[in-house]
């Protein structure tokens, strides 16, 4: 400890031109000295330091433990992350495969449906053509054949008799006779027909159809309701409502009942032939 004399001496010796470092060094020591006058003993200080050091050490060890735990958790998390990533990748692959399978099934179904649609449409076309050909064939092979011996009018389909109708022998009126040499063909089918027929005329250089104008009289008294006209004098018709009118009209006919006439009318086509034996009159 410096005495005041020493300090003063020191101070007096300290002139601005003296060593400044040394001055500060001494002042520093003085300050320490003053501080040291405070009553803290070494054991107390050591104890304080030990406590502080202990606290810091404890904190250090706790922090280390915490860090270790964190590292462990991080490692687990990494592991789980890897597993999840693998699972996601697997799921994506499986789903991609399933999508391809579905696309494949869809394209097979589309192809199958298109094929079925094609067959269905072709079947419709074939069915339509079949109907057309069947009807055409039916028209071509249908004809009537009069069997005078049995008194039957046969509806023929080719060489087979499809139906038989009971009729009477051919009758002719108004001095008409049935032409033997001419093939008989049905030329017209009419209900409520009058014997007067329409005709074609040339008027002013033009062909015109003149319909039958028969006035106010009822038309179907002479020939009944269902009438088949032919290219000869032969007419197939139902029983006349007025016998006189019927007999006054020159023609040949095959007498039949009203029901039979309707059936023959419905079954026979325009253009169908009628085979009548020569000796049927």
């Amino acid at each position: 400890m410096y005495t005041n004399e020493e300090i003063q001496t020191t101070d007096s010796q300290q002139t601005p031109s003296a060593n400044p470092i040394k001055t500060y060094w001494l002042k520093w020591h003085d300050a320490i000295y003053h501080l040291s006058q405070r009553s803290v003993s070494i054991p107390e200080a050591l104890l304080l330091v030990a406590l502080l050091w202990g606290a810091l050490f404890f904190e250090y060890s706790q922090l280390q433990k915490h860090l270790q735990e964190l590292e462990k958790n991080l490692s687990n998390t990494n592991h789980i992350l890897e597993e999840t990533a693998t699972a996601v990748e697997t799921a994506e692959v499986i789903n991609s495969m399933k999508t391809k399978d579905i696309q494949k099934i869809k394209s097979v179904l589309v192809s199958q449906t298109k094929t079925q649609k094609k067959f269905y449409e072709e079947n419709l076309i074939l069915a339509d053509e079949k109907r057309q050909l069947e009807k055409q064939w039916d028209i071509l092979i249908t004809y009537l054949m009069l069997d005078a011996e049995t008194g039957k009018l046969k509806l023929m389909k080719g060489d087979q008799a499809a139906k038989n109708y009971k009729v009477e022998p051919v009758q002719c009126w108004g001095n008409y006779i049935l032409e033997n040499n001419k093939p008989i063909t049905v030329t017209s089918k009419e209900r409520f027909a009058h014997p007067e027929r329409g005709r074609v005329e040339i008027q002013e250089g033009q062909l015109n159809w003149i319909p039958p104008q028969v006035g106010p009289a009822s038309r179907n008294l002479a020939l009944g309701e269902h009438v088949l006209f032919t290219n000869t004098s032969l007419i197939l018709h139902a029983p006349a409502k007025d016998k006189q009118q019927h007999e006054a009209y020159p023609h040949c006919c095959i007498p039949m009942r009203s029901g039979t006439a309707k059936q023959v009318y419905d079954a026979v086509y325009v253009g169908s032939r009628i085979l009548v034996p020569n000796d049927s009159q």
Binding site: K189, Q206, P211, Q213
Partner: peptide, 20 residues
């Protein structure tokens, strides 16, 4: 009516003579 027919004549600008 159903059956087999033939085209018997043809004409242009036909006149319709109205039936009863």
């Amino acid at each position: 009516p159903k059956g087999l027919f033939q085209v018997t004549w043809k004409t242009e600008d036909p006149l319709w003579i109205k039936p009863d």
